[in-house]
Simulated scan of single mutants.
Amino acid sequence: MCVGLLALSSQAQELTLKTVRQANSLVKYDPANADQPGLCHEIIKAVERVDPGLRFVGLDKLAPLKRVERLLADGEVDVVFCLLRSPGRERQWRFLPQPLYTVRQVVAQRVDDPRQIDSLGDLARGSYTKPVLVSRGTILTRRLDAANVQINEVSSEREALQMLVMGRADAVYGQDVNLLRHMRDAQLGSKVRLGRVGFGDDMQYVAVRTGLPAAHEERLMQALRRLDREGVLRQLADKYR
C-alpha cells in the first residue's frame, strides 16, 4: 500500500526531461505521418499517457545520430529513446534495463541477384568488388569492420536502397524494420529483397545522461515497466513491422 501511494505521489509531480529527435530514421520519428508517426515517438507519447506528470521536450529538434550521441554525452539532453547498447556507448551514458523492441540485422539485395549471403564471410568476400552500404554513424559499422567487410557509409537506408537499385552496390546492411519501411515507401518490393539469414538480434533501449537523478530514472522505468506489462511495447513494435 505504501509503495503504491509513493508511486502515485511521484507521478503527480511534474517532471520535464529534455530529449531530441533522430534525423533520417522514419521508423523512429515521422511526425508528419498521422498513421505511423514513428515507433519511438509513439513510445514517448505512451509514457506520457501512463504518467501524466512526465513530459518530454525537444522533439521539435532534429539531429543526426552522431550529434544525438554528443548531446547525450555532454548532458545537453536528459534522455534519448531507441538506441542500441554497446561498450563504447555505455562508457558515456547509462541505459535503462527495460528493452523497448527488437531489431534484426539483415542484408538487402536486388531481386535479380542470385547470390545467397549466408554469413559475414560471404558478405566480406563480395565487398571487395563493391563495398557494402550502411547508414553513417550506426554501431553496425563496427560489426562489419570486425568481419573485414568493406563498407561505404551513406546518409540513410533510403539512399542506400536507391544506390542498390541503380547497381552502384550489391548489398545493403541494416536493421529489418528500417529497410522494410523504406522498401514499402519506395515500392521496391519487386526490385529488392531481404536475405534469408539474420546476422543478430539487438534490443533498442532508453539512454539517459550521466548524472540524471536516480529518482528520475526510476520514474521513467516505472512507466516503461507498465507499458511492457500491459503489452503496449509489443503492440507498438508489431505495428511497425
Rank of each mutant, 00 (worst) to 15 (best):
M1N: 06
C2H: 12
C2A: 12
C2Y: 10
G4F: 11
L5Y: 06
A7M: 12
L8C: 07
S9R: 11
S9H: 10
S10N: 12
Q13R: 14
L15P: 00
V20P: 00
R21N: 07
A23G: 07
L26E: 09
L26G: 01
Y29M: 04
P31L: 13
N33Y: 05
Q36K: 15
G38D: 01
I43M: 14
I43V: 15
I44N: 02
K45M: 12
A46P: 02
R49W: 05
D51Y: 04
G53C: 14
V57F: 04
G58M: 05
L59H: 06
L59N: 06
K61L: 09
L62E: 10
A63I: 01
P64N: 13
L65R: 02
K66L: 13
R67E: 09
R70G: 00
L71I: 07
L71Q: 02
G75W: 13
G75Y: 12
E76S: 12
E76N: 10
V79H: 02
V79W: 02
C82N: 01
R85P: 01
S86W: 11
P87I: 02
G88V: 10
R89C: 11
R91K: 15
Q92H: 08
L96D: 09
P97E: 09
P97G: 07
Y101E: 01
T102P: 00
Q105D: 13
V107P: 03
Q109G: 02
R110W: 08
R110L: 07
V111I: 14
P114R: 07
R115E: 11
Q116S: 15
Q116R: 15
I117R: 03
D118V: 08
S119Y: 07
L120R: 05
L120V: 05
L123T: 04
G126S: 08
G126I: 00
S127Y: 06
Y128C: 03
P131T: 06
V134E: 01
G137M: 02
R142T: 10
L144M: 14
N148T: 12
V149Q: 08
Q150I: 13
Q150C: 09
Q150T: 13
I151A: 06
E153D: 07
E153L: 08
E157F: 14
A160R: 08
L161A: 09
Q162L: 12
M163S: 07
L164C: 09
L164W: 04
L164H: 02
M166T: 12
R168S: 02
R168T: 05
A169E: 02
D170K: 10
G174T: 05
N178F: 12
N178M: 11
L179Y: 01
R181G: 00
H182R: 03
D185G: 06
A186L: 15
G189R: 10
K191Q: 15
V192T: 08
L194R: 07
R196M: 11
V197C: 03
G198F: 06
F199Y: 09
D201P: 00
Y205T: 04
R209A: 14
H216K: 13
E217V: 04
R229P: 03
E230V: 07
E230P: 03
G231Y: 07
R234Q: 14
L236G: 02
D238H: 12
Y240R: 02
R241T: 08
